[in-house]
Design a binder for these strands. Structure first.
Length: 198
DNA sequence: ACAAGGATCCTCT
DNA sequence: GAGGATCCTTGTT
């Protein structure tokens, strides 16, 4: 790929919604696989009844309350590895969920990990991103701003961004369930559940 | 120690 | 559009 251009830890030390919007177009890299981030969701501090921080700091969510710029990976429905990026200051539990990506490099590896599938179905959904990238809960706490292993690099800013409601959080209070904290690159085919984005 | 439910994906209809 | 897979985290007893 191009020049090494890791995002600094300071990039992540602010509100999750701001980090989420700016992560669009950036690159996730893990070994031969390089992905462009195309869709994200912000889970914010301090008041968000959809966020895992709603029970306070627990064993699982402790990394969310730690330093920004680290991975927060958790298991969903017993089988999906969900990759998040920790934001905000220490002791503030917030993160950005990576929902969809587009392939940049390592397509053979991506397709192999995704069962030989082709096209947008490869990477449009958070469980798919985790599988294609080859991450699991053992990556939780891994610093993304240092070289080695899973990394986040700079990338071209998108021309236009769409926002909409977050997906799969019907249990949250209305003001959080309906908040437009999901962001995607406009006109990208690599976006899940396009309905609801505007 | 237990029961409940989940920031999803795939297959089939 | 509906349902099952699959197991960990959490709150409660």
């Amino acid at each position: 790929m191009r020049e090494v251009s890791l995002l600094p830890q300071s990039f992540y030390r602010r509100d999750a919604r701001e980090v989420a919007r700016e992560l669009l177009g950036k690159r996730l890299r893990h070994g031969p696989v390089v992905l462009e981030i195309t869709e994200v969701e912000a889970y914010v501090w301090p008041d968000d009844s959809a966020c895992h921080n709603r029970f306070g700091k627990t064993e699982r969510t402790a990394v969310m309350f730690g330093p920004p710029g680290r991975a927060y990976v958790y298991l969903c429905y017993g089988l999906h590895q969900m990759l998040n990026v920790v934001t905000n200051e220490v002791d503030e539990g917030a993160a950005v969920l990576i929902r969809s990506c587009a392939p940049v490099d390592g397509l053979d590896e991506i397709e192999a990990r995704r069962g030989g599938k082709r096209g947008p179905v490869l990477l449009t959904g958070p469980g798919k991103v985790g599988q294609a990238l080859g991450v699991d809960t053992s990556f939780s706490g891994h610093p993304l701003y240092r070289r080695g292993g899973l990394e986040v690099h700079d990338g071209p800013a998108p021309a236009a961004i769409l926002a909409g409601k977050r997906v799969g959080i019907d249990y949250a209070r209305p003001e959080h369930r309906d908040a437009p904290w999901r962001y995607a690159i406009a006109d990208s085919p690599w976006v899940s559940q396009r309905a609801g984005l505007g």
